[in-house]
Design a protein around this nucleic acid. Structure first.
Lengths: 350, 350
DNA sequence: GGTGTAATTTAAAACGTTGTAAATTTCCGA
DNA sequence: TCGGAAATTTACAACGTTTTAAATTACACC
């Protein structure tokens, strides 16, 4: 077919955009090219001449062509989907949402969609992971709250499935992760309490089975030992305990002899609960005791007197996880895809 | 092929589960049936004999067959996906997450997946809706914070695309929605303030462009007029204002003459900000002034003295939206799919 | 034992894309 | 002017499912 004939064919076919949405076929008819060529041109394959490449791109843009994800997925086996495991414990203070926004930012300009796989109410998180691997529901996975020998991580490693965790593990095989330096947080927070003159510090730790329990404890103990102050650790409760339980515990403990006068609170709600529990017994923040808390939202800046805080930037963590996961999917080595985010002092001005 | 031959064929083929995951073909080979028959049997089509139906189901379960979503989607045009538009304003107190958990519960036993379409940082939410409609990215849509003549709703109605909003609109064409009775909330909250003896009430309203601004205002004004107390409305700020701004406003206003002594707070963070602003000026909650706040989490029960609250059950709203959307997708009439959830007094015991 | 009808099962064609292998065109140097 | 290699384009076959229409089998009745 000569260039002139082609051009005629184009005029003829481009009368009305058909009922359904445009496909490669539509463009093929409009340009007089073969479907394969159009596909190639759009994919910027090397063997397509620059002129047709341009022409195809122009037509595609004009009619608002977007490839059918289902067909692509069927053919290539790639889903263009990244799945986030939503943990029920993340709901209180928008942890999930913060991370999600960061993730969204990372995936913004890519063709990836974000799908949320909530905790199966009955089964464990491992089932969800298994389901996703087995049925190829996503190209990559993101989740948080890792355990030292997290079964989800083990499963993913065994299957060579791309993922990024929020939190480290202790597997010898490296994997991509983003973590917050909770050692630094606890160390710094506790040091600050001591600097304020507090002489018996305490901390509300994450559940023992989670990896960051260790780091947190270690940071706390390091500060304690360096300063030689006394301390105690409440092992009847943890950060996942309902706020009421934390409040009740603090209230009870502060009524007993020799109560702590410095609290390291790695959670906003637990900080609030602590303040409430203390004030129930007539203790005043900054006067009789102090708190240094982890801050992930603007919540704590709303209460009086101001609680001293150390910031953890969750949207940044989300964005980092997104970027690392994309690189992991692209084939980069897992051991090069790790990231430890330091605590930031003071809430960044927006 | 005789039954015996079939049975032999089955034995022969079931030696090893092939490399890839099982497909209809796998089952067809194992049972000696045609692919079509297997598809029908799994779909419980009427013309399949009970015996083969059972046999196919058994084999499918045995080898853990799950239909390929991409192929189904390509063939049928249905995506089996429900998309949630995530609004940036929803991040503070896990609104998004709460709703999401409810939604997840509603979709639990269905084949639907939940995909999150975050606000496109640049474009408006309308672009996202348009994108989803045009490219058939989902079978149904869920979003919140409706305006009286919400352009998203208009677009969806024009295209006959199934959706459920959180919040009402004023279009004459009915559409599915779940809403919280904010009139009842504001009316009840304000009445309580008045019952406590407060004589000048005020309210922090949602942004004027959102539908529930009207309901909230109406409820507030009704209580005010019935009791004949005085009131004022801060129109320099709204519920979306940063907490610091609310706090500063309250602080400034309470230092001026004739300040309000009763606050209706339709948001948890704004309630906190109000308390802080007031206490900055030496006003004590329950003594010099009162607050009745909307409660969507256990946050407010953590501060002292207890703020009186009226509950809004967001997970329940999410679940309701999910169920309504499924029915809408199934073809039910939109006008039958509306739901107004009443305020509940006191936090339900879990 | 045939015949018609109902009950089951089946082959073949799509859905829109990409990969393989082959066909066509273009271009260069002899 | 002609081979032949390089450049460009193409046809066809998948991917796994559902749908349409047709084929086969079973069943009842005369």
């Amino acid at each position: 077919m000569s260039p002139i004939e082609k051009s005629v064919a184009r005029e003829t076919a481009s009368n009305i955009s058909r009922a359904g949405k445009p496909t490669l076929k539509t463009i093929a008819e409009m340009t007089g090219l073969a479907i394969t060529t159009v596909s190639r041109a759009l994919g910027n394959a090397p063997q397509i001449s620059e002129s047709t490449r341009r022409r195809v791109h122009a037509v595609a843009a004009e009619i608002g062509y977007l490839p059918d994800r289902a067909a692509q997925r069927l053919k290539t086996g790639r889903t263009n989907v990244i799945s986030v495991l939503l943990d029920p414990h993340e709901e209180i203070l928008g942890f999930g949402t913060s991370i999600m926004h960061g993730l969204a930012r990372a995936l913004q300009a890519t063709s990836y969609h974000l799908i949320v796989t909530p905790n199966f109410l009955d089964g464990s998180n491992v089932d969800a992971v298994n389901y996703i691997i087995r049925n190829g529901m996503a190209d990559g996975l993101i989740f948080s709250r890792t355990e030292p020998f997290d079964p989800r991580v083990r499963l993913l490693l065994e299957n060579g499935f791309p993922f990024v965790t929020h939190g480290r593990t202790e597997f010898s095989t490296p994997h991509a992760f983003v973590d917050y330096d909770n050692f630094a947080f606890a160390y710094e927070a506790t040091k600050r309490l001591i600097a304020k003159g507090r002489r018996k510090v305490t901390i509300i730790l994450p559940p023992r089975r989670l990896t960051f329990h260790q780091y947190m404890l270690h940071g706390f103990m390091t500060a304690v030992r360096e300063a030689g102050v006394s301390y105690e650790i409440a092992d009847a409760l943890d950060l996942d305990s309902p706020a009421d339980m934390i409040r009740d515990y603090v209230r009870r403990r502060s009524a007993e002899p020799d109560p702590p006068d410095g609290y390291t609170c790695p959670g906003e709600v637990s900080a609030l609960a602590t303040i409430t529990g203390m004030s129930d017994n007539g203790f005043t923040l900054c006067a009789e005791y102090d708190i240094v808390a982890k801050q992930t939202s603007r919540l704590l800046s709303q209460i009086q007197p101001k609680v001293e805080t150390i910031y953890e930037d969750l949207p940044a963590a989300g964005e980092a996880m997104g970027r690392l996961l994309l690189r992991r999917i692209a084939g980069e080595n897992a051991e090069d895809l790790t990231m430890l985010l330091g605590p930031q002092f003071g809430f960044p001005t927006p």
